[in-house]
Computed example of a mutant assay.
Amino acid sequence: MGEYLGTTGAGRPIHIGEGCFIGARAIILKGVTIGPGAVVAAGAVVTRDVPSGCLAIGNPAENKPLPERLKHP
């Protein structure tokens, strides 16, 4: 790819696990992995990996345990 602010090459890929939910207007930065069954809240800015079965919420996003009512059966 072309140059952007003095750097060359493409960014790092984002990996999204199976059964994830990503809310509206969430921003996921390059190189982040979203684990299987994780939930990213609407408007969250995800700057680091979200483990499986966690809820990412806020700006920057914090990882919290997923409440029982939100877990997939």
Score class of each variant (00 low, 15 high):
Glu68Pro: 03
Glu18Tyr: 08
Ala24Ser: 15
Thr33His: 04
Lys64Ile: 03
Ile14Ala: 01
Gly2Gln: 04
Leu5Val: 07
Pro67Leu: 09
Pro65Asp: 08
Glu68Ser: 11
Ala42Val: 15
Arg69Met: 15
Ala24Asp: 13
Gly19Cys: 07
Arg69Asp: 09
Ala61Phe: 02
Leu70Trp: 14
Leu5Cys: 04
Val45Gln: 06
Leu70Phe: 07
Val45Thr: 05
Asn63Gly: 11
Asn59Gly: 08
His72Asp: 08
Leu66Arg: 07
Ala41His: 14
Ile27Ala: 15
Thr8Cys: 14
Asn63Asp: 06
Arg25Pro: 11
Ile27Phe: 14
Ala10Thr: 09
Gly31Phe: 00
Phe21Asn: 13
Ala24Pro: 08
Val32Phe: 09
Pro73Glu: 13
Arg25Val: 03
Asp49Ala: 03
Gly11Trp: 02
Val40Asn: 04
Thr47His: 00
Thr33Cys: 09
Ala24Thr: 12
Ser52Asn: 15
Thr33Asp: 01
Gly6Arg: 01
Val39Ser: 07
Ile14Met: 10
Asp49Leu: 05
Ser52Tyr: 05
Pro73Lys: 10
Ile16Thr: 12
Ile28Met: 12
Pro36Gln: 12
Gly35Met: 02
Asp49Glu: 12
Ala42Met: 11
Gly58His: 00
Ile28Thr: 14
Pro73Phe: 09
Pro51Lys: 07
Gly43Gln: 01
His72Ile: 08
Gly35Pro: 05
Ser52Arg: 15
Ile34Glu: 11
Glu62Met: 00
Gly37Val: 15
Ile34Gln: 07
Lys64Asp: 06
Glu68Phe: 03
Gly11Ile: 01
Gly58Met: 00
Leu70Ser: 03
Asp49Ile: 05
Ile14Arg: 09
Pro51Ser: 04
Phe21Arg: 10
Gly9Phe: 01
Cys20Glu: 02
Thr33Ser: 12
Gly17Glu: 07
Thr8Trp: 10
Pro60Cys: 08
Cys54Tyr: 15
Lys30Gly: 11
Gly9Ile: 02
Arg69Gly: 13
Pro65Leu: 09
Cys54Gln: 14
Met1Tyr: 03
Val46Arg: 00
Val50Arg: 06
Ala26Asp: 10
Thr47Ala: 03
Met1Cys: 02
Leu66Thr: 06
Thr47Pro: 00
Ile22Phe: 10
Lys64Phe: 04
Val50Pro: 02
Arg12Ile: 04
Leu66Ala: 06
Ile14Asp: 04
Leu29Arg: 01
Phe21Ala: 14
Ser52Asp: 08
Gly37Asn: 14
Gly58Tyr: 11
Gly58Ser: 04
His72Trp: 15
Gly43Val: 07
Ala38Pro: 14
Val50Ser: 08
Gly19Leu: 11
